[in-house]
Design a protein around this nucleic acid. Structure first.
Length: 760
DNA sequence: AAGTCGGGACTTTTT
DNA sequence: GTCCCGACTT
């Protein structure tokens, strides 16, 4: 990287006043933020302790911190940098009393939240077919995101009088919201939206506390401002308004990259900021350092179709990209999704063969469901790949169950944890016993744990149930004695190891289907490793508040929920990157493929008849295009099988919004393609039948006897954990293909073929 | 109480 | 196609 350009310099060296930096894709936004913070420290002499910087992901926060440290050449101790949720969580841990929380409050993820809502709906006798729990969940989160509590609805449960709006919500929505709030308070549980709302209320209800932070912070910075929601905006406003001296706030954003409206982000916050925080210095960063002019032109033309924009046009000084054939955007029309995937895999193979690194290539798609076919094609082509997104480590069932044991050991009032593990592994505590406990807890306003103990004392259960329940209670108490003995402190990973071993989960999971059992046990082992390498975030003096020392276990449990991102361990491996366009935001790749450019897929079905949603889809396309540095390849298919059904697909309107002269339509160049590919101008009337009339892709797992099959008895294979081995036997087909492997390191195991790589 | 089968739902994702 | 849940069987 070279020197800052004039606009970047202007942004970095602004006076201590409010500012909005409209930063286009690839315009060096992070660089500006990082330099600005360094400048605040070196030029304005601010202590890192006086700076608060908010990002959208933990990853961005970590990256920014390390870049700041490398500029200022010292540890950034005291600097508060993190996500809104992370910062809110920190505040609530420090000020749990003022926030009306218990000291041992736990953060729950959306999966836990949904379970609680389903539980409540059952208790209230609400039919989950009539009112979907997911709708209620998003209703509750939407309310919280706007600062509206259940108590803000009037006694008829019908009107939101607090906001003086005349919206009528179904009364059961509000009923569930009320019960949900009660249950969370009772169980000391805080969901993601609650973190933000509580932190906001912490400001508005405790003037002293607010004043303390207002005098502590001398500068606020917010990244990805277009993705902030109402409560985040209000939180910032409460913190920075009416302060003396003024607390300058600098926000960075790009309205064209606002792609999270569907989860409450308000692009309008950019415009609102200019009004509410006036005077605001506005700086545009429009010089793009990432992409070729062809790619930028395409992006600019596309986004010009949006009506709701603040206005901005990216340009580049890059000269190495005149309109010659090599630089044009490639467009490929496939017959079906298998052939589309085959084409992409083939292109990647060829590029790889001619010396390009696989990790410089990314395949982007609108929805995760599209990844499977692509993965199969890459496997077939022996191209290593890495899929981002999907199920994350701390979200896996076995991990959540193990952590629920930790939670209950740590805090008995945690009903969510109690429910999850009372009969997992199955220990003969059936529905009857459980519903008795629930009923009693509800009637007496106590936790499930307390209810269970009371009922046992009252001898309310038949002998069998009573003894099973007593054993469970004893188990948890015993686990606490073993792990939390103040006279005999043991390291966190040993605590978790012990809890897992005594929980009975290992035997329980061993009974599952072999490949599943295998991976679950591996994950449980991985959990212990994660605990072993876990370093609590106590870089900030505030976090080591002597009044509220967070035990390693408490810190680990919060970490598991708030920073559940997979650690990108195998980043060093040269592999193609597969991800949704959403998760590609902020990243860049020399060569980008965007697949599935079809109406009703991208743009997605729900967005086509809604201008706001359609424009968000277009921004998503804009984000996708601007990920590409040198080469962009777009593909679409004329027919596609979705959820087992093949339908005809038409090219995405976004393809038409890119100027023709920037696009080169290409066809298959490889004759060994397993599809008829001689023409892409075939009569499309037949295309819906291609899946049937043309030979099926030689799928890796569909047929053991297939000569193309990847695996044969006697062949060498590699497993990530167990290393090299030889195939002894096989059973099952498709995804359920299981292979018995004799490993070089000794022993043989039955494993799912999906986790094995052939070795030549 | 626990395990098995069939019907319906199914964007995007971080925290 | 796949996951989840509820109804059904053992």
């Amino acid at each position: 990287m070279h020197a800052l350009n004039p606009h970047q310099t202007q942004a970095v060296t602004l006076p201590l006043s409010n500012a909005l930096i409209l930063a286009g894709a690839g315009s060096g936004k992070t660089r500006v933020l990082v330099h600005r913070i360094a400048y605040l420290i070196s030029h304005y002499g601010l202590s890192p302790y006086a700076i608060l910087a908010v990002t959208f992901t933990n990853k961005a926060a970590a990256e920014m911190r390390s870049r700041i440290e490398s500029i200022i050449q010292q540890p950034s101790q005291g600097l508060w940098i993190g996500t809104f949720h992370g910062i809110a969580h920190r505040l609530l841990r420090i000020h749990w009393q003022e926030a009306g929380l218990s000291q041992t409050f736990q953060v729950i993820d959306s999966d836990d939240q949904l379970r609680l809502i389903k539980r409540i709906m059952k208790d209230l006798n609400l039919d989950d077919k009539q009112t979907s729990p997911k709708n209620i969940q998003s209703f509750i989160n939407n309310q919280k995101d706007q600062g509206i509590r259940a108590s803000h609805f009037n006694s008829n449960f019908n009107y939101n009088f607090n906001q003086a709006k005349n919206y009528a919500y179904p009364s059961e929505f509000i009923q569930v919201y009320v019960s949900y709030e009660n249950l969370c308070n009772q169980s000391s549980l805080v969901d993601f939206a609650e973190l933000l709302l509580r932190a906001y209320e912490l400001w508005t209800k405790n003037q002293n506390l607010l004043t303390h932070y207002q005098s502590r912070f001398k500068a606020l910075l917010v990244d990805e401002f277009q993705d902030t929601n109402q409560i985040q905006y209000l939180w910032l406003k409460a913190l920075s308004h009416n302060t003396n001296p003024p607390l300058p706030i600098l926000v960075v954003g790009d309205d064209d990259q606002s792609i999270y409206g569907w989860r409450g982000a308000q692009v309008g916050n950019l415009a609102a900021f200019q009004k509410d925080f006036a005077p605001v210095e506005l700086i545009r960063l429009e010089e793009n350092y990432r992409s070729t002019s062809v790619i930028l032109n395409a992006a600019n033309h596309l986004i010009n179709n949006n009506t709701q924009r603040l206005g901005k046009n990216l340009f580049t000084q890059s000269t190495q990209d005149n309109l010659n054939k090599n630089n044009l955007i490639n467009l490929y029309t496939a017959f079906n999704e298998l052939e589309e995937a085959y084409f992409i895999a083939n292109q990647i193979q060829q590029a790889h063969a001619s010396g390009h690194l696989l990790k410089d290539m990314a395949i982007l798609y609108r929805s995760n469901a599209q990844s499977r076919v692509l993965e199969e094609a890459l496997l077939l082509a022996h191209v290593p790949y890495r899929v981002y997104g999907g199920m994350r480590f701390f979200e896996r069932a076995e991990i959540k169950t193990a952590l629920a044991y930790c939670r209950l050991v740590y805090a008995r009032e945690d009903d969510s944890a109690f429910e999850r593990i009372i009969n997992t592994p199955t220990r003969s505590i059936g529905e009857k016993t459980q519903s008795d406990i629930r009923e009693y807890a509800k009637n007496n306003n106590i936790s499930l744990w307390a209810a269970a103990i009371n009922l046992l004392q009252a001898k309310a259960f038949p002998a069998r149930a009573a003894s099973a329940l007593q054993n469970f209670i004893n188990l948890i108490n015993q686990l606490q004695q073993q792990t939390q003995d103040p006279n005999h402190l043991i390291p966190l990973y040993e605590q978790i190891d012990l809890i897992i071993k005594h929980s009975g989960l290992i035997t329980f999971y061993q009974k599952e289907e072999l490949s599943k059992a295998e991976s679950r046990l591996e994950n449980l082992g991985e959990l212990i490793t994660a605990a072993r390498t876990f370093i609590p975030d106590n870089s900030n003096p505030d976090n080591a508040n002597p009044d509220t020392p967070l035990t390693p276990m408490a810190a680990f449990l919060s970490h598991a929920v708030l920073e559940s991102n997979d650690t990108q361990a195998d980043q060093a491996q040269d592999a193609v990157q597969l991800m949704t366009i959403h998760s590609s935001k902020g990243l860049e790749f020399p060569w980008v493929f965007i697949s599935g450019l079809e109406e009703n897929l991208f743009p997605s079905p729900g967005s086509i008849n809604d201008l706001n949603k359609l424009e968000e889809e277009r921004r998503l396309m804009y984000v996708g295009i601007t990920r590409a540095m040198k080469k962009l390849t777009l593909t679409h298919s004329e027919s596609r099988r979705i959820y087992g059904e093949t339908t005809r697909h038409y090219p995405s309107r976004f393809l038409r919004e890119i100027p023709k002269e920037l696009i080169l339509s290409i066809r298959h160049t490889n004759n060994s393609a397993p599809y008829h590919s001689s023409s892409s101008s075939h009569s499309s009337a037949h295309s819906s039948t291609y899946a049937k009339t043309y030979p099926k892709a030689p799928s890796l797992f569909s047929d053991n006897s297939n000569k193309n099959s990847e695996f044969e008895i006697g062949q060498s294979v590699r497993h990530e954990t167990f290393g090299l081995g030889v195939i002894l036997n096989a059973q099952g087909t498709g995804d359920r293909l299981q292979l018995q492997i004799h490993f070089d390191q000794g022993g043989s195991k039955w494993l799912t073929a999906l986790r094995l790589t052939p070795v030549k």
